[in-house]
């Protein structure tokens, strides 16, 4: 990140006494006349004229009082032009930051906050949160609000506490009792400068309602009641039972439920609650019988409609309230009990035949009544007669067929018992079943109709003979009966045959379709998308290969890796396009050294940087995109709170140009933050830094050209599993025996300067497959980077790691490295380049604390192992 120190002005003050606040100067002024111009917000954009420049001297003055809350900062664009108005220099930017003063008090979002909390809540229960803002600079003491409860009403004892930082109001104890105080009012003050004496304050009110819980047990107004009821009587309001409850009126915590504990086994009584008065009304819903029950004891209990609060649940015990009930005897009527009686009458019963007896019962004595007389009430067909004294029922006359037919075999009449003394009447129902066994059906004859047009319509007559030897004919029993002719019968038979044939045909039909048998329903296999066959027609599904199992001496190793979609490298002409001269030389030498007779097009589809188009390729290729997205998200989050909230531009580069010896598919990340468009600093960067910077700054990066066929492409290095980068951290780069002539060059840059923040945790990239991620986020100032941090899993302050693997010829590299000719040897040279704030170049690579300086130097370390080292290279700084 490249930043510029900004000039600062204080808001609300006359800063003119500090003029000039800045000066600009061009060296071109030495030999020609230079005119300085400034532009931007506050100059030629509203608010106009806050800054002016002396066009000859380049002195910039501030002319007005500024308000940070209106314009937190200004960017002054400075130009130097010659007499012809041509720019002599590239435009410079000067950020002028407006320093905040505490000129804004806190403002509560509401004048009165409303909250509520249940009584009996535990201590420290959150009640509400107050919200206030301060327009002064965020994250500044001027906008830091401290909350404080000034007063409480009722003020018996403080019941609430407030978090001075968050404004959260919580209960102080668990003694809140709605039955004592149903509401509290608080006065709260918010003061900026964290409540300091020099802060500005505002005040608000909080109204806290105490919510009811069912923490009071109801009870009846009286502990016992005594009532008297008459037998055989119903009562709709026999007794009122008032219930007392201290909980909130009309709530379920207050409304009582009265229930019977005992005594109401006959279900004579019921209690109905009046929920507005909390009074239970005792009713008699089933008459009591004095002769059966003369006294009884009801026992009732009471609870609430709502469950009891857990704080009193254990204290609740059912308390019985006794109701003594006395049943009074009344003189009762004579009644038919049961109220109806059924008799059987047959055709053989003669006149005055005694059908049965139906007498009324005296309820007081339980025996037949002696005070009533009986008369027939409803008497269909005048069939029966009753003896007025004894209640004996007789046949008035022999039942005829006509009577039987008229009554349809059933007789239903009534008799009355009349008590002339009491002038009361009781009615009993008499039912008589007229059994038809004596009425014999003599003959049933079917007579065909003579209508030839409707041969199937016939009329059936029955001939009935009764015991009078009368023959009754012509009684139509069935009319328009359906008749089937031979043709109809034939059709019916055909129909049944067809119906029987259908299931047989269904069994024989092969609906599933024989294999290869053409059309038919094709069963959809489970766990599939129906007819989608991804790989069936296009060949086998690509298999992700375990790179660790790839034989290193296999000439097709690259094809294997490419198939798996891991980013492998070629190290021919591609990187040389962006390399400096030295690197280019190095690259060519590498090419010569590690070349293999493999086609140059093998790796092209994975070359270049991981931009949008290549992201798609990654998906297709098999790079773990979930990891990529997670990585970027966390990376962005790590920068989100960066100082001054500047946007960050992240770039992820897939190091397919790394070359032999690197873990397959290394990934680098680089972030440039800021608006500095002066990219001359790129000149000092290595090619990989430069490429990263170009990508980050949105510049188009030329794709790597195809390899020159005349340049025999080399094979990439051995494919290492990611964990094999670990030996590199200890100075032991993994090498393949078959690529013994290898040079490993690593670059590491460490951030320096103020304002770095704590690193965000980044998941171990090595757990995601063949991808090595080099972290790039800034680190906290307490972290002292060590050049030994090459373990990518732990390197939290490495920006970019470059590794070039290959033989190098020539004696001088960068003028610093003495490189032996490795083309035919097996020596390995590890070069680390460390950008660190140090003016010297310690050979021991002990880097001073980068926080202390803003200078950046590049340190290169050359580690030359002994010759003949293969594979297990041990390097020591």
């Amino acid at each position: 990140e490249w930043i510029k120190f900004a000039a600062a002005c204080r808001e609300g003050e006359d800063n003119s006494k500090r003029n000039p606040i800045a000066k600009i100067h061009s060296d071109c002024a030495a030999n020609q006349q230079v005119t300085y111009h400034i532009s931007g917000v506050g100059i030629d954009q509203p608010p106009y004229g806050i800054f002016v420049v002396n066009q000859k001297t380049g002195e910039i003055n501030i002319t007005s009082i500024v308000d940070r809350e209106v314009t937190p900062f200004f960017i002054i664009y400075c130009r130097a032009v010659n007499a012809q108005g041509q720019d002599l220099e590239r435009v410079l930017e000067l950020r002028v930051r407006i320093l905040d003063i505490n000129d804004n008090p806190p403002v509560f979002s509401m004048s009165t906050f409303l909250g509520q909390i249940e009584e009996n809540s535990n201590a420290n229960t959150l009640v509400m949160r107050l919200n206030a803002t301060d327009a002064d600079e965020p994250n500044n003491l001027n906008s830091k609000i401290a909350f404080k409860i000034i007063s409480q009403e009722p003020s018996d004892s403080p019941m609430f506490i407030i978090n001075r930082n968050t404004g959260e109001i919580r209960t102080m104890n668990n003694f809140l009792d709605r039955e004592q105080y149903g509401q509290y009012s608080l006065a709260v003050r918010g003061s900026d400068r964290d409540g300091g004496a020099d802060g500005m304050s505002a005040q608000c009110e909080c109204s806290i309602k105490i919510l009811d819980v069912n923490d009071n047990i109801p009870y009846t107004e009286l502990s016992s009641y005594s009532i008297t009821v008459k037998e055989n009587a119903l009562y709709s309001e026999l007794l009122k039972i008032r219930v007392i409850d201290l909980d909130e009126e009309f709530s379920a915590n207050w409304i009582a439920v009265i229930f019977f504990i005992s005594g109401n086994e006959g279900n004579w009584f019921a209690i109905e609650m009046n929920e507005r008065t909390n009074v239970g009304i005792l009713k008699v819903i089933k008459p009591l019988d004095y002769e059966a029950v003369k006294n009884l004891q009801l026992s009732i209990g009471v609870r609430n409609k709502a469950e009891f609060h857990h704080s009193i649940m254990s204290r609740y015990k059912v308390t019985a309230t006794a109701i003594s009930v006395t049943v009074l005897n009344v003189i009762e009527d004579s009644v038919f009990r049961p109220g109806s009686k059924t008799f059987i009458v047959t055709r053989n019963m003669e006149q005055n035949y005694k059908v049965g007896e139906f007498v009324a019962i005296d309820l007081d004595t339980g025996g037949p009544s002696t005070t009533v007389r009986y008369v027939m009430g409803n008497n269909p067909a005048d069939l029966l007669a009753i003896d007025s004294k004894t209640g004996i029922i007789t046949l008035r006359k022999k039942v005829t067929w006509d009577q039987y037919h008229m009554l349809n075999g059933k007789y239903k009449g009534t008799i009355l018992s009349i008590d002339d003394a009491l002038q009361r009447t009781c009615t009993g129902t008499v039912l008589v079943n007229l059994e038809d066994g004596d009425w014999e059906i003599l003959k049933t004859t079917t007579i065909k109709a003579d209508d030839r047009d409707k041969p199937e319509h016939t009329t059936t007559f029955s001939t009935i003979k009764n015991t009078d030897d009368r023959v009754i004919t012509g009684v139509p029993l069935i009319k328009d009966n359906v008749h089937f002719g031979p043709a109809g019968i034939g059709l019916l038979i055909m129909g049944f045959l067809v119906l029987g044939l259908v299931p047989f045909l269904l069994i024989c039909c092969d609906c599933g379709g024989a294999p290869g048998g053409g059309a038919g329903f094709e069963p959809v296999p489970e766990c599939s998308d129906g007819a989608i066959h991804s790989w069936a027609v296009e060949g086998p599904q690509p298999q992700l290969m375990d790179l660790t199992q790839i034989p290193l001496d296999n000439a097709n190793v690259i094809e294997c890796v490419d198939t798996s979609g891991v980013y492998t490298n070629e190290y021919c002409g591609r990187e040389t396009q962006d390399m400096g001269e030295e690197e280019r030389m190095r690259g060519f030498e590498l090419t010569d050294a590690v070349k293999t007779p493999r086609g140059p097009e093998t790796c092209q589809e994975y070359s270049g940087t991981l931009r949008r188009n290549s992201m798609r390729e990654c998906r297709e290729g098999g790079l773990n995109m979930n990891f990529m997205e997670s990585y970027f998200c966390q990376k962005a989050y790590a920068y989100a709170d960066e100082e001054e909230g500047r946007p960050s531009n992240d770039c992820l580069l897939i190091y397919d140009i790394e070359g032999v010896g690197s873990p397959a598919g290394s990934v680098g990340c680089c972030s440039f933050i800021g608006e500095d468009l002066d990219d001359s600093f790129l000149d000092n960067l290595g090619p990989k830094f430069k490429k990263l910077a170009d990508i980050t700054l949105g510049k188009s990066v030329e794709p790597y050209p195809d390899l020159d066929p005349s340049c025999p492409p080399e094979s990439t290095g051995p494919i290492y599993p990611p964990q094999e980068t670990e030996p590199l951290a200890s100075g032991c780069p993994p090498l393949s025996p078959c690529y013994g002539t290898t040079t490993v060059i690593s670059e590491s840059t460490y951030p320096s300067g103020p304002g770095v923040q704590h690193p965000m945790p980044i998941p171990d990239p090595l757990g995601y497959g063949n991808v090595t991620v080099t972290e790039s986020y800034a680190t906290s100032g307490t972290l002292k980077p060590s050049v030994h941090i090459h373990d990518n899993r732990h390197a939290s302050n490495v920006l970019v790691t470059e590794r070039v693997v290959g033989p190098i010829s020539g004696a001088d590299l960068h003028g610093m490295l003495e490189m032996p000719d490795l083309r035919d040897g097996s020596n390995v040279i590890v070069t680390e380049r460390v950008i660190a704030p140090s003016s010297s170049l310690p050979t021991t690579l002990t880097i001073s604390d980068p926080r202390e300086s803003s200078n950046v130097v590049v340190t290169e370390r050359v580690i030359r192992p002994t010759s003949g080292m293969m594979g297990t290279l041990a390097m020591h700084p």
Partner: peptide, 26 residues
């Protein structure tokens, strides 16, 4: 070279001090 200098308000002895703006790599 095209450079900007800004005033340092925090000098102890009251003298005006000018800082050239530098880019700094963090």
């Amino acid at each position: 070279e095209f450079q900007i200098q800004v005033r340092d308000y925090n000098t102890k002895n009251g003298t005006i001090k000018w800082h050239s703006i530098k880019r700094q790599k963090r």
